[in-house]
Simulated scan of single mutants.
Amino acid sequence: MQFYLATSFIFPRSLRLRLFTLCFIATHLPLLGYLAWGLATGRIALPEFVLLTLATVVGTGIALFGIGALLNPIHALAEALHDGKDAGPALPVVGDVIQTLYAGVQRARDRIDDLHQAAHEDPLTGIANRRGFLAELDALPADRRRGCVAIIDIDYFKRVNDLMGHEEGDRVLAAFATRLSALVRRVDLVARWGGEEFAIFFQDCIEDEASWSLARIASRMRTHPIGDIHGRPISFSAGICRWNGGELEDAFARADEALYDAKQSGRDRICRAPSLLQEV
Rank of each mutant, 00 (worst) to 15 (best):
E136N: 11
R159N: 08
G169R: 03
E207A: 15
A191Y: 02
D162G: 12
G147Q: 02
L124T: 06
V187K: 07
D170P: 03
F176L: 11
E121G: 07
W212F: 00
A139M: 08
P141E: 03
R130K: 00
L137R: 10
N129A: 09
A182N: 10
A128V: 01
I200F: 00
F157W: 00
I200C: 06
E168V: 13
V172M: 01
D208Y: 10
V149D: 08
N161R: 08
F202I: 03
P141A: 04
V190C: 14
V160A: 10
L214S: 09
A174Y: 09
V184K: 04
L140S: 09
G147S: 01
E121V: 15
D208N: 11
A142V: 15
L180E: 03
C148V: 13
S181D: 15
F201K: 01
L180H: 13
I127P: 10
G132D: 04
I200P: 11
A139D: 12
D208R: 01
A135V: 07
W212N: 03
M164N: 14
R144M: 13
D162C: 08
I127T: 05
I127S: 04
I217D: 10
K158R: 04
A177N: 11
D122Y: 03
E167H: 06
R216V: 13
D153E: 09
R131Q: 03
T125K: 09
A174I: 12
V172A: 05
R144A: 14
D204H: 15
I127C: 05
D138P: 11
D155N: 05
A210E: 06
V190S: 06
E197Y: 04
T125N: 08
V184P: 01
D208M: 10
R216K: 15
T178E: 15
L183D: 15
I154S: 09
F202A: 11
Y156A: 14
F198G: 10
W193T: 10
E168G: 11
D170T: 00
L163C: 12
A210H: 08
A175S: 14
A139W: 05
E167T: 12
M164T: 13
R159D: 02
I154Y: 11
A199S: 12
I217A: 07
R185C: 01
V160H: 11
L183Q: 15
A177V: 01
T178I: 00
D153N: 13
S213V: 04
L163P: 05
D162M: 02
G126R: 14
D143R: 15
R144Y: 12
A142M: 14
F157G: 07
G126F: 13
L189W: 05
H166T: 04
A215N: 01
R179M: 13
E207M: 15
G195K: 07
A191G: 03
A135I: 02
H166Q: 09
D143A: 12
R144F: 15
A175E: 14
R171I: 10
C148I: 07
R159K: 06
G165S: 08
V190H: 06
A142P: 02
A174L: 12
N129I: 03
D138W: 07
L163F: 14
D188R: 11
W212R: 14
R186N: 14
L140C: 07
